[in-house]
Design a protein around this nucleic acid. Sequence first.
DNA 1: TTAGGGTTAG
Length: 721
Amino acid sequence: MSNGSISLALESSSSLFTKILHYTRSKNLPKGQSLHAHLLKTGSSSSCIYLSNSIVNLYAKCHRLSDAHLAFQEIQSKDVVSWNCLINGYSQLGRRDSSLSVLNLFKLMRQENALPNPHTFAGIFTSVSTLGDSFTGKQAHCLAFKLGYLSDVFVGSSLLNVYCKAGHYLGDARKVFDEMPERNSVSWTTMISGYALQRMVKEAVGVFSVMLWERGEVVNEFVFTSVLSAIALPEFVYVGKQIHCLSLKNGFLWAVSVANATVTMYAKCGSLDDACWAFELSSEKNSITWSALITGYAQNGDCEKALKLFSEMHYCGMNPSEYTLVGVLNACSDFDALREGKQVHGYLLKLGFEPQMYILTALVDMYAKCGNISDARRGFDYLKEPDIVLWTSMIAGYVKNGDNESAMGMYCRMLMEGVMPNELTMASVLKACSSLAALEQGKQIHAHIVKHGFNLEVPIGSALSTMYAKSGSLHDGNLVFRRMPARDLVSWNSMMSGLSQNGCGTEALELFEEMLHEGIRPDYVTFVNILSACSHMGLVKRGWSIFKMMSDEFGIEPRLEHFACMVDMFGRAGELYEAKEFIESAASHVDHGLCLWRILLSACRNYRNYELGAYAGEKLMELGSQESSAYVLLSSIYSALGRLEDVERVRRLMNLRGVSKEPGCSWIELKSQFHVFVVGDQLHPQIIHIRDELWKLSKLMKDEGYKPDFDLCLELEGVID
DNA sequence: TTAGGGTTAG
C-alpha cells in the first residue's frame, strides 16, 4: 500500500465525501477515479448511500455515463437520489439519444416503484424539451401536477421550457408561467426567450417590463440576452436602444454575452451605426462579437465593410470561428467577390479548419454564386453523402450560372439517392424550369411539391406561379398566385412580369393597382414590369405618369431598365423623336447610351425612319458598341439610303473592332427531348424532312400573297458569314 | 449529508 492510500484509508467518510464533491465540481476525473478505486477496495462506499450516490454523480458530471451506469447498478438499495444522479447526468448531455435514455430510465424507475421527486422532474422536462416531444411533456406535466410538484420553481421552469421550445404551445407556457407561485430569473429568461423564438417582440418585452416592475432590477445578464434576441425589426429598434441603455446603467458592460446580443440586435434592425457603437463600447470582445458585426454588415448589403472588418479581426490577433468564416464567405457570395472568397478559403485551410458540412456548403455557395461553378462542383463532390443544403446550393448555383439542364440533372440524381428536397430546392428547380420554359418538367415538379406535402407559401408559391406564367400557362400561374396563403413583393412582381411578357398588359396594370391597394410597397422591379406592360400596350401617357410616380411618390431612382422601357415605349408607338430627346436627357452613362440607342435603332428600322436610324447608329459607333446587330443594321440603313461609302466604313469598323455575328439559335421541347437548331447546321437527324416542310410553308405563304421585305436585306455576306 | 431549470453569434 502506498503512502497516499494509507492516508486515504485513515480518512473519515465525511472527509472522503468532501473530496468527492470537490473532484465532481472541478471535474477532476483521474482523482475521482482513484478515490472510487479506494472506496471499492475498502468497501466503504457500499455501506453509505451518500457516498455511492456521489460516485454516480461524479461520473455523470464528468460525462462518463457508462461508468455512472455501472456505479448505479452496484448500489444494492437505490434511493431516489441514485436515480436522479443518473437521470440528470443523461439529461444534461442535451443529446437526442441521451434524452431517450432518460425517458427509459424514468419508465424503469416507475416499474421499480421508486417515487420520483421534483429533482427527477427537472431532468425529465429537460429531456422532453430536447426531444421536442410535447405529448410526453403533457403526460409528465399531469403526473407532476398529481404529485403536487408544480409549485417547485425548478419543476415549473423546466416545464415552462418544454412548452416554450415547442412553439405552438406558447399559450400553455404562459399559463404555466402565470400560475407559478414563485418565479426567478430562470423562469423570466425562459418565458422571454420562448416569445423571442416566435418573434413575438411585444410579448417578450412585456414580460421583461413586468419583471422590472416586480423586481425593480434586472437580475442577471441572461435576461438581457434573451430579451435583446427578440428584437430584430427596424420598428422596434427604439425599444432595443432603451434596453441597451438599461444594461449599461445596470452595470452589465462587463458581460460579453450582452454586448454580443446588443450588436446582433442592432444589426438585425438594420442600424449598423448603432451596432458599431455597441461593438466599440464592449469592454471585452470574442469571436462572436466580431461575427455578429461582420454578418450584420453582410446581411445589410455592405459586403465591403464585412470583408474589411474580417481582415481587421485578423490583425487584432482574434481567430475566427466557423461562424465567422461562414458569415464572411456569405458576404463574398453576395458581393460576387471571388478573389476575396478564395483568400478566405486559403486562410481557413491555413488555420486548419476541417471541411465540415457547413463550411463546405458556404464554400460551394460562394464559388457557385461568384460564377466559378467547376470549383463549386469540386467542393460538392468532396463529400460522399452531401446533405440537402449542399445539394440545394449546388442546384441553385447551376441555375444562377444559367446551366439549367445541369440543375435539373442534379435534382434527379438527388431524388435517386433518396435525399428529400426542401422548399428552397423546389424553388430553385422551378426557376430552372421557368428559364427553360419547360412546362412538362415544371408540371412534374408541381406534382413533387404536392406529393412531398409542401404548401404554396413563399418561395415555392412564387416560383410555381412564375414557372406557369413564363411557360405561357397564365391561367395556372394566376391560380397558384391566388391560392398562396401569403404573398410577398417578389410574388407580385413575378406574376406581373408573367402577365406583361405574355401580352396581358392590361391585367398586369390591374394587378399593379391591386398590389398598391393592398398596401404593398413597389420596388424597382415592379416598375420595370409595369413600364414594360405600358410599352407593349402602347400606353405612352400612362407610362410617362408611372415613370414620374416612381421617383416622386416612391423615391425610387430610375435605373437603366426603366430608361430602356421608356425608349422602347416611345419607339413602339412611333414617337421616335420623343425617344431621341428622352435618351439625350437621360443617357449620361456609356452603358445607358449603348442600350438605349440600340433600342431606338430597332424602332427606326420598324418605322423606316432611316435618317434618325443613322443618327442612333452613329451614336452606337461613337460609344464603341460590341453588338454585331448594331453594325449590320446601320450598314443596311446606309445601303437603303444609297450611302455606299458609309456602308463600307461601318463594315471596316466592325472588322477593326473584332465584332462578329453570333449565329442564330433556337430550340423546342418535344416529348421530353430538346431539338436545337443553329443557322446553317445540318446536324438534326430529320433535317431533310424539316427542310421539306419549311419549303412547303414558304410556298403556302407566297400563294397567300405574303411578300418578303427586302428593304433592309443587304449583300452583307462578307460581314455576316 | 448526495441529485434539478434558463441565455448570445451562422
